[in-house]
């Protein structure tokens, strides 16, 4: 039996980050990962693990749990890479869909009914709190600015769902707004966000 560490000197020395411009590069890398390309996967890790961890932390509010979710999602990326289809959407959107869904599933299973009520109060304002370790503050500012272009209700609906992990029905309860309205605001809020951010994913 050999030591796993000894087999993989390349990975151990792999602190070098690949090109910092993910967009199309990420799509290509994911396609390579689907074929079992291990070095492409390392590059994907370097590009996306920070996004995944950041999103998980926002949703879970627990650094240790967020790290677990990040690791699970990175594993999912490897496993499911063959399901990524660049014709359907960007690699970033694909990765973040996996990440967000996993984080939301986790937070829902973790939350007790009582906790739910408590955290709701903070979730509304939390979208613009300052995290010390945010990697890409320019991107963050841009998204914050676009969130600011939504109506207050749109913003609350989108933020409570995305960062709070609440269902539209729960958001309706929290905000005292009919569920049908919340569904509509989530949709038109996202449309406005999309329009403000510009064409999909280009700036990444």
């Amino acid at each position: 039996m050999t030591d796993g560490d000894a087999q993989r000197p390349r990975a151990l020395s792999g602190g070098t980050r690949r090109a910092h411009r993910p967009s199309h590069r990420l799509d290509d890398l994911l396609t390579d990962v689907a074929r079992g390309d291990e070095s492409a996967y390392e590059a994907v890790y370097d590009l996306t693990s920070g996004w995944v961890l950041g999103a998980a932390r926002k949703v879970l509010r627990d650094p240790a749990m967020a790290e677990e979710v990040m690791q699970e999602v990175m594993l999912e990326i490897w496993r499911r890479a063959s399901r990524f289809d660049p014709a359907v959407g960007s690699g970033a959107a694909w990765v973040m869909t996996l990440a967000h869904r996993r984080a939301v599933d986790r937070v829902r299973s973790e939350r007790s009914h009582a906790e739910r009520e408590l955290k709701a109060a903070t979730a509304v304002i939390d979208y613009d709190d300052v995290t010390e370790a945010v990697e890409n503050s320019l991107e963050r500012q841009r998204v914050q600015r676009c969130l600011g272009s939504l109506t207050a209700l749109q913003r609350e609906c989108v933020s409570l769902a995305y960062y709070g992990g609440y269902t539209y029905a729960e958001v309706a309860g929290l905000l005292g707004v009919p569920a049908g309205t919340v569904k509509t605001r989530m949709r038109d809020g996202l449309i406005r966000l999309r329009d403000c951010l510009g064409v999909a994913g280009v700036q990444r």
Binding site: S49, G50, A55, E67, A93, Q144, L197
Partner: peptide, 21 residues
């Protein structure tokens, strides 16, 4: 819409601890 929603997440990127890599 997914592209827009995913920006909400990527904008929050934080650097993972290097020992996780």
């Amino acid at each position: 819409l997914r592209e827009a929603a995913s920006s909400l997440g990527t904008a929050e990127a934080v650097r993972p601890r290097p020992e996780l890599r």
